[in-house]
Structure formats: C-alpha cells, structure tokens
C-alpha cells in the first residue's frame, strides 16, 4: 500500500513538473517578446540620436511614440510577472480555500499565449455568486490546464473557448465549452497520471449535455491533501 501511494505521488509529481515546465516555457517566450520590442525601441532611439548627430532633427512625436512603447512593454512585463508570481505561489499550500473564478482566470491567463497560437480566445464567465472550494490549488490548476489542452487540441479551426462555473446537485461544475463538438472518447482512456489527478481532487471529467462542453465535476467531498488516501475517479455525493 505504501508503494502504491508512493507511485501515486510520483505520477502526480511528474505531471505537476510537466505542467510547471510548460507554463514556464510559455512565460519565457512572452518575456522574450517583450525584450525584443524593448530592444528595437532602444535601437531606434540610438539610430535617431546618430541621425541627430549628423544634423537631422528628431521629431518630438517620434520620441513620444518610443517612450509610449517602452511604458506599454514595461506594464506588459509587469503583468506577466504578477501572473507568474501568483502561479509560483500556488504550491505554497497543499490545501487552501480558493475562489474558483480567480483560479480559473489564472489558468486561462497562463494559457492565453498558447491559445492565441491556435487562434483560440479564452473567456471566463463568472458565476452569479462567488464559488469557493477547499482543495489543492496547484493540482486543480493542473487539471484545468490538462482539460483545456484537450479542448484546444480538438478545436483546430480556432474560435472561442469559454469557462463557466456553477453549483449543481451538490457538485461544483467547471464547464470548458469548445467551439465544436467534442469526441466522446475525450474522457475515456485517460493517462494514469490524469486518473490519479482526478482521484486526488475527488473530481471527475465528463462530457456535457450538448457534446461541446468538457466538464470538471468537483465532488461534495472536498479534495484530500496530497498523500492522503484518495478515492476513485468518481467523486462521492452526500
């Protein structure tokens, strides 16, 4: 039993590291783009100053435009780093009460660049009232990320992917709606790591009624901390 639990933790750990790696790679790409823009604007200022040395006047609006570009990119980098910092701190506690809209928005923001590469936009539609949940924040982020990856992989033509949160019959349901119909086998034959992730979160993955929603259903029994005995993939009611 101890061996099985250790293997369970290993799968979750490996999957978590892969998730962390993908997010880090995406953020580093975004920051590279910011640096590239800053580099060109610094270069343009240098070009203009060389031209000025040769007697060519610099138009004030040119400098204002460059200055505006610097400010925009600095704000952009600041926003990227704030999101990165929030994500990094999601491993601080293995169990915490979280606002699910905030957590979903964080994952959607982290996945924004990868979605844009597929011509997909991500929208989080907030519920009428806040929904909080006590769980392992990092594992839930990982599950949402993996579920979103599945939906995006099916949405080859691009379009809008929407997240909706709702309470339903004792469960919390996070629906990820694709612009197309999702294949029925999307929620079957899951890799071992994903099955264990669902188990650790006391969650299940199902297709919604219209066939275009992938639903993460968080069961009534709020998820155990990692290392506690986890139940099967089906969340218990009651």
């Amino acid at each position: 039993m101890g061996g099985a639990m250790s293997e369970h933790a290993d799968h979750l750990g490996t999957q978590g590291l892969q998730f962390f790696g993908k997010v880090s790679a995406s953020i580093s790409h975004e920051l590279k783009n910011v640096l590239a823009v800053l580099n060109e604007n610094a270069g343009l200022m240098e070009d203009l100053s060389f031209a000025a040395e040769r007697g060519k006047a610099i138009a004030p609006e040119q400098l204002q435009r460059i200055s505006g570009n610097f400010s925009r990119q600095i704000r952009r980098a600041d926003a990227i780093l704030k999101v990165m910092n929030r994500f990094a701190h999601s491993v601080d506690h293995s169990r915490a009460r979280i606002d699910l809209t905030e957590l979903t928005t964080l994952v959607a923001t982290l996945a924004g660049r990868l979605a844009a590469m597929r011509n997909i936009t991500l929208d989080v539609i907030p519920p009428a009232e806040d929904i909080t949940w006590e769980t392992n924040p990092f594992l839930l982020e990982n599950l949402i990320w993996l579920s979103l990856e599945k939906v995006m992989a099916c949405s080859e033509g691009g379009g809008a992917v929407r997240f909706r949160l709702a309470k339903e019959a004792g469960e919390v349901v996070l629906s990820i709606t694709a612009p197309i119909q999702l294949p029925a086998d999307l929620v079957t034959n899951l890799p071992a790591g994903q099955v264990q992730l669902l188990s650790a979160l006391a969650a299940r993955l199902v297709l919604g009624p219209t066939g275009s929603e992938l639903e993460i259903r968080l069961g009534c029994r709020e998820s155990p901390a990692v290392g506690e005995e986890a139940t099967g993939g089906e969340g218990k009611k009651g």
Partner: peptide, 16 residues
C-alpha cells in the same frame, strides 16, 4: 505578430 516589434524593426531597416 508582435506589432510593436515588427513596425519598429521595419522603421530601423528603412533608416538603413
């Protein structure tokens, strides 16, 4: 697709 990057680079190449 980075508009500020590509427009500024274009301006710099144009100056050359």
């Amino acid at each position: 697709d980075e508009t500020e990057f590509v427009s500024t680079l274009a301006e710099r190449l144009s100056l050359r």
